[in-house]
């Protein structure tokens, strides 16, 4: 299965995958017309990828997400949590905007949902 790749638009984030670094990047804002259809291919791919791989880093720089995108993000984190329980080395780097307190609050709320390494760093 090809890895997901999407350009950034006004309401959807850029998605890319670096195979050698095992890193899935999601950058931008997320309020698609339909979050479920937007994220479904990413979730399908990640599910397959985590079955056959030893590691995954999720590198996020999302400054705003609408409510249905937060649901999709939680689904993504749940897939990683399951993989973590099977011994796959997973982690998250969540990049936040230091000028916007909402940005770090969002990161902290998601970090409460997982047990694997979750690093929250300011966008420089």
């Amino acid at each position: 299965m090809d890895h997901p790749s999407r350009p950034q638009t006004q309401s959807t984030p850029m998605i890319s995958f670096d195979e050698t670094a095992h890193t899935l990047c999601i950058v931008g804002e997320s309020f698609p017309e339909n979050s479920f259809t937007f994220y479904a291919p990413v979730l399908d791919w990640l599910k397959q990828y985590l079955k056959n791989s030893q590691a995954l880093v999720l590198d996020l720089a999302i400054t705003y997400m609408n409510s249905s995108s937060t649901k999709c993000m939680l689904d993504l984190l749940d897939l990683m949590e399951d993989a973590n329980a099977r011994g796959v080395k997973v982690s998250i780097i969540w990049r936040f905007d230091r000028e916007n307190p909402r940005s770090i609050e969002l990161a902290e709320e998601f970090s409460e949902e997982v047990t694997f390494p979750f690093e929250i760093v300011a966008i420089s």
Partner: peptide, 15 residues
Amino acid sequence: MRREVPPDALGAGLG
């Protein structure tokens, strides 16, 4: 957020 969303749902009931 933890609740299952029906397959044809347009939103997550979070708005």
